[in-house]
Nucleic acid binder design. Structure first.
Lengths: 268, 268
DNA sequence: CGACCTTTTGAACGTATTCAACCGATGTGG
DNA sequence: CCACATCGGTTGAATACGTTCAAAAGGTCG
């Protein structure tokens, strides 16, 4: 079903010459029309910090895109792991679950972010990735990425940084879940979203939430009612203006203060 | 101070011939007496799944050990990142902190586990690693590990799996922090500890906690009093026997049940 | 042995959850 | 195109759970 949404137009758009490298033997890997080097996301995505030559190598393995409609699943826990995905457009949630049916949104991902790294360890995905709006991803076959890292160690190094950044990000979520109260969690969430949107050239103060209150709650370890109440509180206090999914941050500084003040160490 | 604890005896124990590989030019890297191939942890540590030849390569870059006394810091947030550390013996906690003084124990690590990967992304450590008992680590210089991964792609692949496993582990902690109640958290913690100890040949049902109630609480997002009460509850219920840091699991199955029953999804 | 740290336990309190009702927005089919 | 069903969101009141504050006992280490 969702495999059907492979972008045939992109596949048929292949141009250029075959790949010279022997280790990338897998047939006719050729450049795509809109390749990494011309992608407007190259400053936030996998190519960050690579030379022109290295990006050219990368383009040779990223030749497939996949389109998903809102609500479709990119991958599911249990699916065999073969590729990472670089988000070209759209918005995703990652959801982890325990064997007994508990689940939790472990993160929200937007354009330029690399997802699927949870699958490397067991060659099987361990969480679900679901599009929260119509989205498009670039498919990065993982074995090819590893092969390429041998030829272009800078790419391998950069990939290590991306994985490490994910580990650090999760530390932040753990801090949030373990030591913040409801309003602090929501403030942290909004500030994080704002900052990431700003890094992509969007407004830092006005944006549309692509997820429901329930999904926000699941991510923040709160019930949807609590999220809703916190939104209302922030609005009553004049820090933000909320109308359904549309959020406007009116007083960024006060939101930040909310975080730095509450601070209660777990140790002293 | 802690740099002084470099194991001079180990350094002077270098034997064997210089490294032949040109890309590992950094001087006289030679084999250590007790090398990876003879280490009793090779089945759980970095060498897992590598061939004899690949392990031999690995041994050439892991030539330093570091000893820490209980309470000493292996690295601290802000320290420049140069190496990963494979725990040879002992027990560590990793602690992350926000700029405003909140902190949280993000995990506990034991022999055979690889730590320090948080530092890769910004070339600076982002959390502290502290020995909870006298410990010893093998120093794995990261640039050498990356160089070696080019020569032995299987090593690089295995390293990716280790990083991915850390990401998956953190998903588990997020699930715990976001959706479990106090007793469930403690049960999950004990079962996890039990399972990891068993994987190293120790008893799955009887062990000594290396951390305080406060550190457990910090990791589980609970106050130390709550942890203490949960321990007492489990003991009253006959599932475990606790005496200070000594824990004996009497009814593993009931502990597991405690987890699978409470299950409350955040979505339905 | 004494000082300090860790742990336990009790009682009062506060915050988030639960349950429930209601409202508005969105989408579907007659 | 409207009627209706559904979904998402808001708000209130009662409840439950973990926290806070406090006291005291048990260990540990100089």
């Amino acid at each position: 079903m969702s495999a059907d949404s492979l972008r045939n137009s992109a596949l048929s758009a292949r141009i250029g010459s075959p790949v010279p490298e022997p280790t990338l033997a897998a047939g006719n890997l050729v450049k795509l029309k809109m390749a990494c080097s011309h992608c407007h996301l190259r400053e936030v995505c996998l190519p960050v910090g690579l030379t022109r030559e290295q990006i050219t190598l990368l383009e040779q393995i990223v030749y497939t895109r996949r389109r998903l409609k809102k609500g479709e699943t990119l991958y599911r826990a249990g699916d065999p792991f073969r590729s990472l995905y670089a988000i070209r457009s759209g918005f995703f949630k990652a959801r982890a679950a325990t064997p007994d049916g508990r689940d939790q949104v472990t993160g929200f991902q937007m354009a330029g972010e690399l997802i699927g790294m949870d699958g490397i360890s067991h060659e099987t995905h361990t969480c679900d990735s679901i599009a929260l709006e119509d989205s498009e991803v670039c498919v990065v076959p993982f074995n090819m990425l590893e092969d390429l890292s041998v030829q272009a160690p800078a790419l391998g190094h950069h990939f290590h940084k991306v994985m490490s950044r994910e580990i650090v990000r999760e530390h932040g979520v753990m801090l949030l879940l373990g030591s913040m109260r409801a309003e602090e969690r929501l403030a942290a969430f909004l500030l994080n979203l704002s900052q990431r949107l700003a890094a992509r050239g969007f407004s830092a103060t006005e944006f549309v939430l692509r997820m429901t209150r329930e999904e926000i709650g699941s991510h923040l370890g709160l019930k949807l009612e609590t999220v809703s109440r916190a939104f209302s509180k922030f609005q009553d206090d004049g820090m933000i203006a909320v109308k359904q999914k549309h959020v406007q941050i009116l007083e960024m500084e006060r939101l930040r203060k909310l975080l730095t003040n509450g601070s209660r160490s777990t140790h002293d």
